[in-house]
């Protein structure tokens, strides 16, 4: 179960891994917009080239990216097929049956959708494969810092996020222990109909919640004993430093964006 969310990070020592998480988060976000701005084949070729270069410099094998693609496969296939069959008329008609048309425009559209999906998934997979969840959390809270001016308690939210991440493995272990204990008492997890399956999770959830509340109480006492008052008046041990490689990465990225904009149809 823990592989589902957290086994994704691959600890390697590549340039991509060592980039500032803020830099990676912002870049991924900008990339999302850029992908939707591209419209000519050449502009897509440039973006594909950039994505491949990013993947190669992360030293992560392509297999992991294909694995990241798998859960999205049905969504992609569905969107591509809908685009293919229901596109407005345009260009040569290859196939026609009642309301279904396969036209040249439809083919092009579905190809574009497919490439967009692929690029976005590849890039976000690269972000999660090369960045620790904790670094993502630190990066996010650092990027959200300006929101403090509109009275959003960014530091408190960051502390909550960090503690939540810290306790995920602990609670996962606990869930496994409880499941084993309940199995030993004859509970079948994941058997029978949907309702029966859902019911079988009650003997897991009740003790798990009980224990989580107890832990929360212990934790708050321990935090208070260690001098925790509020999240605003604290110094930071973990800091993020913007380095030369971050600046270089952005220069490359902006050049790619410029090339893409130059080659797109206006």
């Amino acid at each position: 179960m823990s592989n589902f969310i957290f086994g994704r990070y691959l600890p390697l020592n590549s340039t991509v891994h060592r980039l500032d998480p803020r830099s990676k988060l912002l870049l991924s976000f900008c990339y999302l917009i850029v992908v939707f701005l591209a419209n000519s084949w050449l502009s897509y070729a440039i973006l594909i080239g950039f994505t491949l270069a990013a993947i190669l410099s992360s030293k992560i094998s392509l297999g992991f990216f294909l694995k990241g693609l798998r859960p999205m496969l049905w969504l992609i296939a569905f969107t591509v097929v809908v685009q293919l069959l229901f596109s407005p008329a345009g260009g040569h008609v290859y196939f026609h049956w009642t309301i279904l048309n396969i036209t040249q425009a439809g083919l092009v559209n579905s190809g574009v959708i497919f490439i967009r999906f692929l690029l976005i998934i590849m890039m976000s997979t690269l972000l999660t494969l090369s960045t620790q969840p904790l670094d993502i959390a630190t990066g996010l809270s650092s990027l959200m810092r300006p929101l403090r001016w509109v009275r959003i308690p960014v530091d408190t939210l960051a502390m909550m996020l960090a503690i939540a991440l810290r306790f995920v493995p602990t609670l996962m272990d606990e869930a496994t222990k409880i499941m084993n204990a309940q199995r030993a008492r004859g509970v079948d997890f994941g058997e029978g109909g949907l309702i029966k399956q859902a019911k079988s999770f009650i003997p897991l959830m009740v003790p798990l919640f009980m224990s989580a509340f107890n832990r929360a109480e212990d934790l708050s006492t321990a935090m208070e004993a260690r001098g925790y008052r509020d999240s605003e008046h604290r110094s930071q041990y973990r800091i993020l430093t913007w380095q030369r490689r971050d600046t270089m990465t952005w220069i490359v990225f902006l050049m790619v964006v410029a090339a893409m904009l130059a080659t797109r149809r206006w």
Binding site: D218, R226, G227, Y228
Partner: peptide, 20 residues
């Protein structure tokens, strides 16, 4: 239940962070 930090060094620093 008293390990607050995500790593060992973060946890040791917790009390120091609270004291600014």
């Amino acid at each position: 239940n008293q390990f607050v930090g995500a790593t060992v060094e973060d946890d040791v620093a917790f009390g120091l962070e609270n004291r600014q």
